[in-house]
């Protein structure tokens, strides 16, 4: 049978993949995608705990699912703002590589 720990381990590995993406890649778009992977790993463990803590009425704990709803909303807003900053940056410098934008002033 599938235990709670299996879901938590899958979620942890997904988080580590996203973290490695932020550390390794230099393309800003890929870094944003890796951030999304990390947020989704958190969502997976929240939903797993929600299913694990069944209420006396026999329903999953919906508080965690409401929290996941909020995370998805904030993540969508974050992607929109992040990509807008990326477009503004690309207009100014014609690059999305973090190595080329290491100066504070240009």
């Amino acid at each position: 049978m599938i235990t709670l720990g299996d879901y938590l381990i899958v979620s942890g590995i997904l988080f580590a993949i996203g973290f490695a993406g932020v550390m390794l890649r230099r393309n800003l778009i890929i870094i944003l995608m890796s951030l999304e992977l990390m947020l989704n790993a958190a969502n997976l463990s929240l939903v797993a705990f929600s299913r694990f803590r069944v209420s006396p009425a026999g329903l999953p704990n919906y508080n965690a699912q409401v929290f996941v709803f909020f995370i998805i909303t904030v993540a969508a807003a974050e992607v929109a703002v992040g990509l807008a900053i990326l477009v503004a940056l690309f207009r100014a410098r014609q690059t999305t590589d973090v190595k080329d934008i290491s100066e504070l002033k240009f």
């Binding site: 709670l4 720990g5 942890g12 590995i13 299913r51 694990f52 026999g58």
Partner: peptide, 22 residues
């Protein structure tokens, strides 16, 4: 990070239980 997560989940008692039925 992965090793840390594995060790934390290894010490977590509830992680070995299956999901209760709904």
């Amino acid at each position: 990070l992965v090793i840390q997560i594995f060790s934390v989940i290894g010490h977590f008692q509830a992680a070995r239980q299956t999901f209760p039925s709904l």
